[in-house]
């Protein structure tokens, strides 16, 4: 019985092997090939694609991506804390309503949200008209780094909120009262008690947000236009426009390694922090 029911997970295991592990292995393989007009998978064996990744053009994209994702993560974490805290310390009914209100943007397609920003910040949109009334002449607020950051923050925020909520939930209200009783102002309580005690949620939320932001395609593609280029845009263009699959593959693997190193480092750091 035990042995047989244990096998119930095999279908999904096979699915993951065939359509997650094998395709990534394929990526690794293509990333080590030369681009070729005769064979779509590329030919030969080379490290040239990885060399290209660390050259000017691609390297700039990596730096820009890391920078924008880091800024978006930082802003996202700052904005998410008050909301997550209010959710956790609300009465059950308010908590349910607030949870639903965060859940909807979490699950809504990023396309719809970007559509909204496109109307708000784009040509002839309300934001532009308001600035024009103030005497500031702009055609559009899109196609700038700040507009991309706005999009990334809004995209990543609900993920951050839902990472913080369980961590904040574990903090007993009595501990906050104890801090106040010992003379801590509300902000001191936040800095000295709530922040350190929710560090695990902050770390996992930040990783999630960074991962989402650094691999985002739709936000930079629509809100950044030609002014901003992030990794996912370049991968998309290499695959579907330039048909330079080896370059796209090498770039993908580079992104994957970057994120893995980051996650590994964060896990080690948090393990050391909780290892008491």
């Amino acid at each position: 019985m035990r042995a047989r029911t244990g096998l119930l997970f095999v279908p999904y295991l096979l699915l993951l092997l065939a359509f997650l592990v094998v395709p990534i292995a394929g990526l690794v393989e293509i990333s080590a090939r030369n681009q070729s007009v005769t064979s779509i998978g590329g030919v030969g064996l080379t490290m040239a694609n990885y060399q290209r990744v660390f050259e000017g053009f691609y390297l700039d994209i990596i730096f820009d991506t890391v920078r924008l994702a880091a800024i978006a993560t930082l802003i996202g974490a700052t904005l998410a804390y008050p909301l997550a805290y209010v959710i956790v310390r609300s009465q059950p009914l308010a908590r349910t309503v607030l949870t639903c209100l965060v859940m909807v943007p979490l699950m809504t397609s990023v396309v719809v949200k970007v559509f909204g920003w496109f109307i708000l910040l784009g040509r002839g949109g309300p934001a532009v008209r308001m600035l024009q009334k103030l005497g500031i002449e702009v055609q559009t607020l899109l196609n700038t780094e700040p507009s991309v950051v706005v999009g990334l923050v809004e995209f990543a925020l609900p993920f951050m909120v839902f990472s913080l909520v369980p961590a904040l939930d574990r903090i007993s209200p009595a501990v906050e009262e104890a801090a106040a009783n010992l003379g801590a102002t509300p902000f001191q309580t936040f800095r000295l008690v709530i922040l350190p005690l929710s560090a695990s949620g902050l770390t996992s939320g930040a990783l999630l947000c960074f991962g989402i932001s650094s691999s985002a395609y739709v936000v930079p593609a629509i809100m950044g236009g030609h002014a901003v280029r992030m990794i996912a845009q370049q991968i998309y263009d290499d695959v579907l426009v330039a048909f330079d699959w080896p370059a796209a593959a090498a770039f993908s693997i580079a992104l994957l390694v970057l994120l893995s190193v980051l996650i590994f480092a964060a896990l080690r750091a948090s393990r050391r922090a909780t290892d008491v």
């Binding site: 998410a80 909301l83 209100l101 909807v104 909204g116 925020l157 209200p173």
Partner: peptide, 27 residues
């Protein structure tokens, strides 16, 4: 329940929530 921090965070939290819901509402 005693939670002065909740009271302090109420307005920022509402603002953040509006920011999150803004683009969808526009559409």
């Amino acid at each position: 329940r005693f939670s002065p921090l909740r009271r302090l965070f109420l307005v920022p939290a509402a603002a953040v929530l509006c920011f999150m819901l803004l683009p969808m509402t526009v559409v």
